[in-house]
Structures are given as C-alpha cells and as structure tokens.
Design a protein around this nucleic acid. Structure first.
Lengths: 242, 242
DNA sequence: TTCACAGGTCAACGGTGTTGTCATAAGGTG
DNA sequence: CACCTTATGACAACACCGTTGACCTGTGAA
C-alpha cells in the first residue's frame, strides 16, 4: 500500500463525486466546521461528514490520514479566523489584552469547534503565525527571550483553558444548561447552616457569581504580573549594563 | 417501562453475575477507575467495563442512566480522593496551594472524567464537601463573604480549566500524543529566522517550556493577588471600624 | 414451599473509524 | 480524436461502540 494521503499540491485529477461535488481539503474543513456549528460537536463523524459533502466517507482518508489530522486542520482554521482583522497598536499590554479577549471570544463564538481543538498543537500555518505574532509583541516590548517564552506560554494556556471551559457550557443542550444552573440554587442554596455553614453563609453570592466567566479578571492578573517582571528585568539589565 | 435505575438504598436482592461477582455502584466506579489507571482513558467503555467486572454490559444501566452519569460519579469519587488524606495546616495560602495542585494532579490521573466534569456541577457529596472546605479556608482567613466567593470562583475555575487543558492531551490516543510532543521540536524549532525571527530566536526556550504545565505559576499568581486583596480589605475594615 | 419480581443474560439496532479492493473518468500522449 | 494509465472516488467489510427490549432465573419474603 503506497501513501494513501496525497498532498494538495500533488493532486492532479479533480474528479467529482457521484453527487457532483469536487472534494478538496478546504471544502472538507469548511463543511466540518459548518456541521459542528449547526448540529453540535457530536454531529462530526467521518460518515456524517461524508454525507454532508455528498461523498463516501472513505475518500476523506485520501485527504487526512485519520480523524485526528482533520481536527488539527479545523483547529488551525479557527485560529486563522480569530486573528483575521486584528492589527497591533504598538502598546504590548493593550495588544495582548485584545488578543486574549479575541481568542476567548472566538472560542465562545465557535464553542463546539473550540472544545474539540483547544488542547492541540497543530503546527500549521495559522498557529505558527499566531505564535510568531505573540512572541514578537513580547520581545519588542523588551522581554528577554526566556521570559518572553514564559509569558507566552502562560498567556496562551490561559486563553485556551478558559476558552474551552467557558465555551463548554455554551455548547451544552439548553435543558442540560438550565439543569446545571439550577444545581446551585436547588442543591447548594438549600444546604442547612448546621452541616455546611460556609456554603449557607455565602449561598447568595455563590448563585450570583458562578454565572459569569472569570477569564477577564484572570487575564488582567497575568498582564499585571508580566508588567512587573518586565520592570524587574529592565532594572537588572541597567545594573549589569554600564 | 418503569424506572430502570434503582437507587442503591432501594436495592434488595444482591444477585451475583454468571461469573460470581456481586455488582454495586461502588464496585462499578472502582473498576472503572482501575481500568483507566491501568490501560489508559481509551480503555473505558461500557462493554470493556462489563468484561472487567465479569458481567454483561447491560446491567450497568440499572445503576447509571447513561455513561455520562457514570462519569459524574467517577468525577465525584475523584474529588473525594483528592480531599482524602489532606489536612489543613491553618495557613490559608499554603492550604489552597496544596489543594489546587492536588486537584490538578487528580485531573491528570483521570483525564476523561476531568474533561467531562470540568464544566459540570455534580452536586454530589464530595463536591459539596470540597466547596464547603475551600469556602471555609477563605472565610477563616478573613475574606469577607463576597470576596471569599470571588476568590473561590477564580480558584476553582482555574484549577478546573488547567486540569482539563492539561489532561486533554493525556486522553489522546498514544500515537497522537507522541506526535503532539514532537511538533515543537520537529516543526517550530526548524523554522528559518528569515521568515519567523521571533520563533527562531526563542526556539530553544519554547521546546523546553511547552513540555510543562503552566498551572503552578498561574496558581501562585492567583494566590498572590488574593493576598493583596485580603490586605486591602483588612485595611479598609480597620478604617471603617473605629 | 411457594412464587413475584429484581436483577441478571441475550440479542439486536444503529451508529462509529478505518481499510482493501474495485471501477471509472480525467487528462496527458500520439 | 482515441487511447491508456492511473488517480481518485465507491463499495463492502471489520471490529468496535452505547443503548434498549425481551426474556429467564434465583432471591428472599410470605
């Protein structure tokens, strides 16, 4: 069995499927994202994707080695869409804040695709572009290389982690989400002070607080800490310098 | 069809399976966790679980409505184990740090349960116990109720978000996980400085840093911020006091 | 000792990812 | 324009998955 997957550039015969669709890596990724957004993450299966494309599932394996590789392609497309339209202002802190909020918003806008792809390193074009951009912001701001990487890592992990967390509940079917919200009111808010004094004392705050995302606060926390580090490293450099 | 799932207390006839095993909710959860620990997250399926128990898969549905409910039970057991053996020292910051690290480690040990439960509230006994414990630490440390809830929320979300993020890769099939680890070395570390100057300049640091979780750093950041808030609120109270 | 029925077994349904084999039309060549 | 190669899509099969309905049997109360 020679190579099953043929790179896009090496493809020569664009043969339409029985239903007249001309397949391509892009079309497959596009259709997959549409499927996820419209019918939920569970709706994405090789067979359903084939059906949605108007093709047999098996030729998909001539474009992606396995489902996982397709997932990575979807993830990268998501990154690309998130970055599209963004322009740096030159203020590193403002830029990072904007990027973080965009990534978070992007995850919320494509909740199902986000939950699927948040934890993967794609190594594809858009992701590489994003990494280069963020590292550039930090290094241009004056962060030493090692420190820039540390901040980059913390920043990206945080955006991905909260993006996945917050979009996961968005992706739940409505009744499940309502049931979820009710647990705080129906279960926690009713615990007696005798057995659970701390929960009982704060029940009102709990019900109110657990509805909102804690990401913006966490992001600002991170940026403030980074700023402090930057000031430190500048002071150190001045000392060593001359 | 009357109720299929019978609550543990209402069970009356303990009938052994063909292979002589007496089923119970506890035994099922225990076996499921053992399966995950011994053969990876992928090894957990209703059918395999049945086989491991020495029983047909179908009676499991007399104990849990569906796989999801089993996962929640596993998640709660996970919380229970996390707390078991932990003793408060009286130093709120050290206690929270220890709890956070334990939660994170627990998530890594049981990735599938962690991923599932990160954005869900189980409302089960161990979860309630954990909420009560954490709120108690904060209130005893002197955090006012509203502030205690705010810190609680940030702390828990962070632990869950990073737990899910970091454990998601653990839940991947082995080949995918290996490929993942290689992307930084094989793809990023080889980008030319001409096209990607910032990545090229920091490649060495990237390869080293991206292996580790950024959770411990993020946790310390959060605790430091909380400590500052606590000092502020104490100062405010003194002012208002007399 | 009897006997209702709880709690097992069994078989089946419709789904999944993936692969080996086959048919056919695309597109270069004479 | 006809031919031929072969790239690429179709088909069928495999082994798995979660879940359910029908059935059987041993438990434990009467």
């Amino acid at each position: 069995m020679s190579e099953r997957v043929v790179p896009a550039t090496a493809r020569q015969r664009r043969r339409p499927t029985k239903q007249g669709v001309v397949l391509s890596g892009e079309l497959i990724v596009e259709t997959a994202m549409r499927l996820i957004e419209e019918h939920g993450a569970d709706a994405l299966s090789v067979r359903r994707l084939g059906r949605a494309l108007g093709a047999d599932p098996s030729p998909l394996y001539r474009y992606f080695r396995h489902t996982d590789e397709l997932m990575l392609a979807i993830a990268d497309e998501l990154i690309g869409r998130t970055l599209r339209g963004w322009r740096p202002t030159g203020d590193w802190r403002a830029d990072l804040r904007e990027l973080g909020l965009r990534m978070h918003a992007g995850a919320l806008a494509h909740p199902r695709a986000a939950t699927l792809s948040a934890h993967r390193v794609t190594g594809r074009t858009y992701e590489i572009q994003a990494v280069e951009t963020i590292l550039g912001i930090l290094r241009n701001a004056g962060f030493p290389d090692a420190e820039a990487v540390r901040v980059y890592h913390a920043f990206v992990d945080q955006a991905l982690a909260y993006g996945a967390l917050d979009s996961a509940s968005t992706a739940l079917p409505k009744p499940a989400r309502d049931a979820e919200a009710d647990v705080w009111r129906a279960t926690y808010a009713r615990l007696p002070a005798t057995s659970h004094p701390h929960i009982a004392a704060t029940a009102r705050h709990l019900v109110a607080s657990m509805r909102n995302s804690s990401y913006p606060a966490a992001l600002d926390l991170l940026l403030t800490a980074a700023e402090a580090r930057l000031a430190q490293s500048r002071a150190g450099k001045r000392l060593v310098g001359d």
